[in-house]
Amino acid sequence: MTETLEKQHLAIETRDMHLFYGHFRAVKDVDLQVIPQKITAIIGPSGCGKSTVLRSFNRMNDFVPSFHMEGEVLFHGQNIYATDVDPVMVRQRIGMVFQKPNPFPKSIYDNVAWGARINGFKENMDDLVEQTLRQAALWDEVKDDLRKSGLSLSGGQQQRLCIARALAVKPEIILMDEPCSALDPIATLKIEDLMRELSEQYTIIIVTHNMQQAARASDHTAFFTMDEDRAGIMVEYGETNQIFTNPRDKRTEDYITGRFG
């Protein structure tokens, strides 16, 4: 396979990526290749830089004043950290769902419509709202009361609303930062089913500290841990099945069998 072809077949590729907070190197030398239309899970113990890595994929770390990075994050073959790249445009293409559901204090309808509206969506907004709420498996629960505040929904519903909101901007990639950590097991399963359906159209990268979730819901898994300098490193990356049944690295094995972390 030639290099250009390979680039087209990757959703995100990092090259020699180092992430820093001030002088502290939080993540060291990550080379990760995310396959499109698959679910990629990032697992690892607390503090190993999983979320930092995820947030560097749509430049959410830009808001941390001390943050800087070295290396490249390629999206369609283009380094999103190049000086001529607008982070706002990056975030339109690479959406995000956060750890804690964070709907706007607006109506359900406006929660979904807002992102599309600011990004210049000119077609029928009602259709878009219905379509994305259906995609997020929330439509049947809220269709009679779209004017209700997004904050009045339950935690699981709020998180699906946040997913619908992200979908309405029509991104290619959806980053999920421990999206179920604030939810109960039933709401968690709903989100996992939803992820599976969405992965037919979208590339999903999920950070989770729940190993069962990674094993259940992802196609590929990257295992991160800390080295002796407390910097996050990627130990192993491969198909989820292989990582959980036949890890190549001793540290991965220790982690997934529960001997560490």
Partner: peptide, 27 residues
């Protein structure tokens, strides 16, 4: 206004102005 709300807006591709005027000020 919690940071998570700003992050939600930025995550949808909002500019600083859109975030400030349409999300943070109303909240």
């Amino acid at each position: 206004v919690p940071r998570s709300l700003r992050e939600a807006a930025y995550g949808l591709g909002a500019t600083r102005l859109e975030t400030a005027v349409q999300v943070v000020v109303p909240a």
